[in-house]
Amino acid sequence: MSEPIKQDTPAADGERRTFLKAGAAVAGAVVAPGVLLYGVSQARPPEEGASSKQRWGLLIDTTKCGGGCHTCVDACNAENGLDGKTGPQDPQWIRKVDIKDLRTGYVQSLPMMCQHCEHPPCVDVCPTGASMKRADGIVLVDRHICIGCRYCMMACPYKARSFVHEPLTDQNPEVPRGKGCVESCTLCVQRVDRDEQPACVEACTAEGHQAMIFGDLKDPQSAISQALKSVDSVEVRADLGLNTGVRYQGI
């Protein structure tokens, strides 16, 4: 696993970290692995919640994103247990959107998913508060209190949300999903909480496209903050003033 964005941390050396983690797992019972790992990793301990000192975001370089490439979509489906069907009633958490400038004919391709807004319309409209934003800016659906009214789907300007129309089985234990609730990209919150990158970003990087950078928008030293400082990036539907966590470069 390569970690392009964590180069500022002491754990920058991905191999070393992986080795340590594996070693710790083996020796977990005898040595005090927690102490050791807290020392080398930036990951917050599990009993500590998400903090507003961080805000997770994505920078997507559309000039590096290839038309016809669905690596991010496939990785998302595998990680989150989606079957990858694309009928009108099938959920899609991330999709590739092809756009063509009507005046110039310039063609681009980009991944579109929940933009993890600072002011998410889906959270505003949700009657029960099931649609919520975590302290670190990740927008989620609390399925325990989602009543399936779909008003958030009406309100989302990015068409990021899907409704589960059918009963599901064999879910990924880390990603509960089920009939009658609304769902969307979670920024792979289960991975982020253990200091990993979202599946789409990891896959895009592994494929060599490097079109997606994930990181902490509030940490001025993070790779994403550095990149945002040096390139021109935009929000989709910036006119709405939602301050999205996902930004695009090259459109």
Binding site: T18, K21, A22, A43, P45, P46, R194
Partner: peptide, 12 residues
């Protein structure tokens, strides 16, 4: 090299 659950999670 990554166990099913991160060792971080298991050792609270």
């Amino acid at each position: 090299g990554q166990p099913a659950t991160s060792p971080l999670m298991a050792s609270t």
